[in-house]
Design a protein around this nucleic acid. Structure first.
Length: 111
DNA sequence: CCCGTGACTTCCG
DNA sequence: ACGGAAGCCACGG
């Protein structure tokens, strides 16, 4: 298992996030068995910035705050994409997060 | 090679 | 309950 594997797994999980749903960096890290490495998930997103098949806009921090919107090329792009999927956002924060949250540990088979 | 930084999260005082 | 500090891994300067 190489470090590159971790990145690859992150991409796979993110790609499986259903439309209109979101998850957190920590949830993904936890699913991959490295919950303490949530920052790596963020770093993986940063590295995947050029990949269109990765819906990075569906990945937010644990409270549903759009912390990564600045890296989206446009300040309003991320929010726009999420709202387009039916997610309500106010003050850069997802409303009713529990209703939109998608936990890979509960939705995907164990590693 | 060492230091600082980052799309985070959790623990301790 | 709140704020500060630490832990995690990788990458760039």
């Amino acid at each position: 298992m190489s470090k590159n594997d971790f990145f690859d797994k992150v991409y796979k999980v993110v790609r499986k996030i259903p439309e209109g749903k979101v998850t957190s960096y920590g949830a993904i890290a936890s699913y991959l068995g490295a919950k303490k490495s949530a920052r790596l998930v963020g770093w993986a997103m940063n590295a995947s910035h050029g990949d269109n098949s990765i819906p990075a806009h569906r990945v937010v921090n644990r409270i549903g705050l759009l912390t990564g919107k600045h890296h989206f090329g446009g300040t309003k792009v991320m929010q726009q994409l999420l709202e387009n999927e039916g997610i309500v956002i106010k003050a850069n924060k997802i409303q009713n997060l529990e209703n939109f949250f998608w936990d890979p540990r509960k939705s995907l088979p164990p590693v």
